[in-house]
């Protein structure tokens, strides 16, 4: 069944279920190719500081956001390009931000790790591990009783932070409409999460009697179905839910990380479960979409991002004399 709410999110506008999944697939392709572009521009010295790419994790962001309304609120992580693009942020404005240009979504003030786009429901991307959990919990407090929900994306590493325990408990006892989405990519920076995490992740929210499930985070269809259930629970006023989406990043933690800590063969095994490959297979085999149509999505995104790249590199840098004020006038 086609989610009524799904068709109203951002630029998501489709006529039927196949159209919906084609659009969601396009978003996953956009995120993957965007990350490839960021990587290339970083190596050319055009993207500064550091970047954290989410290649391989696209289905989580796209699947969860596909069931949200425009008035819902989302908190992303410093690995947040996918969260922003999934919500419908114009890739031009995101790339321009990463390039440090005046035309960026935050006019070059934020950079890769701190993107904010309230127009599309993105409260922010948070550079402190677990910060997104806090932000979404607060949004849940504000959204009590409205039928809208808040979503926190965070990694497996964040489940060992104080924010995780305090905020999940806070949301549960206060019955807040929050969906906590753990993108478990297997590693907290360079360290396997199993080496630094006592017990299982899902046992923690379950101990707080928060409805929780662990699922295949590389399958858009699976993520979307679970997210819809969790979001509907929150909209009904039945409190928070927890989703542990098992996924994998195909790249290192950040630009300084070649990922040498991965056991041999692990990346190859996960490549077989690439969310784009899974999505393509489902579209072709289950939804009877011609291969050529799927391929044309890939080509269209490539063409679009080539334009975005050229325009971004030509965009002006902010002027240093643009006066930044400490406080908003009151």
């Amino acid at each position: 069944m086609l989610g009524r709410t799904a068709v109203t999110r951002g630029s998501l506008s489709v006529a039927d279920e196949v159209g919906l999944y084609l659009e969601l697939y396009r978003r996953m392709v956009l995120i993957r190719q965007f990350e490839d572009l960021v990587n290339a521009l970083f190596l050319q010295g055009q993207v500064h500081g550091t970047t954290h790419l989410c290649s391989g994790q696209e289905a989580v962001a796209v699947g969860v956001t596909s069931v949200l309304d425009p008035a819902d609120r989302v908190a992303g992580t410093y690995r947040g390009h996918g969260h922003a693009l999934a919500l419908g942020l114009d890739p031009q404005r995101l790339l321009d931000e990463l390039l440090g240009r005046e035309t960026g979504i935050c006019a070059g003030r934020a950079g890769s790790m701190n993107v904010v786009d309230l127009e599309h429901g993105l409260m922010g991307c948070f550079g402190i591990v677990g910060g997104s959990i806090a932000a979404a919990t607060g949004a849940g407090l504000a959204l009590r009783g409205t039928g809208n929900v808040a979503v926190a994306f965070f990694g497996d590493g964040a489940t060992n932070q104080g924010y995780f325990f305090e905020c999940l408990n806070f949301a549960k006892v206060m019955n807040l409409p929050v969906v906590y989405v753990c993108e478990n990519n297997g590693y907290g920076e360079y360290t396997p999460f199993t080496a630094v995490t006592a017990g299982s992740i899902i046992a923690r929210p379950l101990a707080m009697e928060i409805p929780s499930q662990t699922l295949d985070g590389n399958d858009l269809w699976v993520v979307r179905a679970a997210a819809r259930q969790a979001v509907e629970t929150a909209r009904r006023g039945d409190g928070p839910s927890f989703i542990e989406a098992l996924t994998y990043r195909f790249v290192g933690h950040s630009r300084s990380d070649p990922g040498k800590y991965r056991p041999e063969g692990e990346l190859d095994r996960w490549r077989l479960k690439d969310p784009l490959a899974v999505g393509r297979r489902r579209l072709v085999e289950e939804h009877r979409v011609p291969e050529s149509e799927v391929e044309s999505i890939v080509e269209d995104v490539r063409t679009e991002l080539d334009r975005v790249r050229q325009k971004g590199l030509a965009a002006p840098f902010p002027k240093p004399d643009a006066s930044a004020r400490e406080f908003k006038d009151g």
Binding site: A134, A135, G138, A139, A150, E166, C167, F170, M174
Partner: peptide
Amino acid sequence: DTPISELALAGAAFGSAVCGK
């Protein structure tokens, strides 16, 4: 009334303020 959870209190204040409270 809230839990004794200062991290959550500050986060709840921030997040709710972003959303108009």
